[in-house]
Amino acid sequence: MSDLTLNTKPARRLTRKSVANNLFSWALVLPAILFLAVFTFYPLVNLIQLSLYRGNITNPYKTFRGIENYIDILVKRPQFMTTLKNTALYVVMYVPICLSLSLIFSVWLQKARKMNNFAQTCFFAPHLVATISSAFMWSWIFSPESSGIANGLIRLFGFNTHNWLGSSATAMVCVMIMNTWASIGHHALIFLSALKSIPGEVYEAAELDSSSSIKTFFKITLPMLSPQIFLMLITMTTNSFKIFESVRQMTGGGPGISTKTVCMFIYDNAFETNNTLGLAGAASIVLTIILMLITLLDFKGLEKKVHYQ
């Protein structure tokens, strides 16, 4: 018996110590957990709840509808699916074009030339302009009247003027051009800093190894930029799925609903039409799930190809 007491005493003391340790650890992470709970988990739960009711801003929970809202947007009313298709089309155009152009510009800016500091500033400046202002400016550039720069230019070459933002064939492309213009400097800057961290000796070694400049780019530069490319791919995809301001300002979703995006659908149903807050909630949940899936697929499919130092 005495042996047993001798054996358990230090063990109990250890347990007490580890409990104190545990409490201290929890105290340290508590602020972060509280922050997440209040500003992330609670709104998410709230959103899920919202998506199950019919209501408006002043009275969100008028009648319980269950999954009716989801059936509405996914099956009964085709508008949501159209906006999802529009948004996906935009993402598919914007991400590869913006990513590759940023990469090309960063490689170009990398060379130590006097004009490159100036060029870098020029590319980055649009990122500092509010999206709404940029969108307003580009609306004017693509104005259907001959006063618009785009139309002025093509008239100079003898073509007929075109209603850029008023045609379903070109409206989304115009929005994409605007957003590429606005963000390319920012992305190029991130690539540029990564490019500058690649030691020059590696390139010299490649030169001595008879590597052509194209081969050096694809075999050495690109793999070494893979962490930045991967990060950019994920943030660009998720951000462009959430595109709102620029489309709303430039096309208002038109012509018809040919450029209406998911976020515009959510906004309209939440604030513009009555008793459709639940639809907006359901659409938000669907969008969140889609973005989660895409990010997950990105990680599953590409992370192994990313080279971390």
């Binding site: 030691p199 070694a205 030169e207 008879s210």
Partner: peptide
């Protein structure tokens, strides 16, 4: 051009290709 000189070089920081 460096590639046509029939030389090989070992650099101070090795300059090996880290992704290969």
């Amino acid at each position: 051009a460096p590639a046509k000189r029939d030389i090989a070089m070992v650099f101070q920081n090795y300059a090996i290709y880290p992704t290969m």
